[in-house]
């Protein structure tokens, strides 16, 4: 569409943008860099503020896996986070779609009421929630882990707000074609809203991966250890091994970043790509 000359002109006009983005990126990445380099240094070097990578990574890693069940915790965290993400996306997107597409006075009122659910600090509702989960014999189970996290007003709201951009004509046309309401959701809405699903998946995965207060209350055996709990184990002693700690922290941070990197094209270029 554009000629070579045009391209270079456009790129030249983007130079300030590039400079700005590079600065923002460096500021954003620096702590990650520090984390990686800290994972390669001895504890003493880390606490002394050394920021150049060292050659101690394997030793830190060996210390970590000899002391903590790293792979099991990674596996658990992956399992819980993926489970939460999938169930949450399903439940919340259906609800968000319902609230927007079929909205009327009563559904709008209900939505406002549901929003209230996220506004009370978690500590206040934890005790009653614990009693419920304990009575239901769901302590130390994945169901107990995900239950409070899968239906969140926030995710419903996100799907509701984004469903606003979903063309109503498509629904009308589909109805004429004889699709029922459930089919319309799965065959029309679901594929079209890829970008929303991808963004919601990133956020939900991250929240589930990092969840700490609730899991630490309901998980009481060695088998259910998650990554944030493993990190907590590393900082609780009289002596903190910072090198080993940062090695663990690195393993705790990477999955969310990878998930983001894999999905970012989906949510940032979804529709634009499809239209072309």
């Amino acid at each position: 569409m554009t000629e070579k000359k045009n391209v270079s002109m456009i790129q030249r006009r983007l130079i300030p943008t590039y400079i700005f983005l590079v600065i923002v990126s460096i500021i954003s990445v620096f702590p990650l860099y520090w984390m990686i380099s800290a994972a390669t240094n001895t504890s003493t070097d880390v606490s002394r503020g050394k920021i150049i990578p060292g050659g101690y990574f394997m030793q830190n890693f060996k210390n970590l896996i000899s002391q903590q069940p790293l792979w099991k915790a990674m596996g658990n965290s992956f399992f819980y986070a993926i489970l939460t993400t999938v169930v949450c996306l399903l439940v919340c997107s259906i609800a968000g779609y319902g609230f927007e597409i079929y909205h009327d006075k009563w559904k709008d009122k209900l939505f406002s009421i549901l929003l209230l659910a996220m506004m009370v600090p978690q500590v206040a509702t934890m005790i009653p929630l614990f009693q419920m989960v304990s009575k239901a014999k769901l302590l130390n189970t994945s169901v107990g882990f995900i239950l409070p996290m899968v239906s969140t007003p926030f995710m419903i709201m996100m799907f509701r707000q984004n469903a606003r951009a979903f063309p109503i004509d498509i629904i009308e046309a589909a109805r004429i074609d004889g699709l029922n309401e459930v089919q319309i959701f799965f065959q029309m809405f679901f594929p079209t809203m890829r970008s929303t699903y991808a963004a919601a998946a990133v956020i939900t995965f991250m929240n589930a991966w990092n969840a700490y207060l609730w899991p630490k209350v309901i998980m009481t055996d060695n088998k259910s250890l998650t990554m944030p709990m493993l990190i907590a184990n590393l900082i609780t002693g009289y002596v903190t091994d910072y090198g080993m700690l940062m090695c663990g922290v690195l393993f705790c941070s990477i999955p969310t970043m990878v998930v983001f990197f894999v999905l970012q094209k989906q949510f940032a270029e979804g529709i634009t790509g499809a239209v072309k």
């Binding site: 419920m132 009575k135 239901a136 014999k137 769901l138 994945s142 107990g144 055996d221």
Partner: peptide
């Protein structure tokens, strides 16, 4: 689970 106070569902899963 909340209503009846007992749920066979996942009790067997991990305890």
């Amino acid at each position: 689970a909340a209503d009846s106070g007992s749920s066979g569902g996942a009790a067997a899963a991990a305890d």
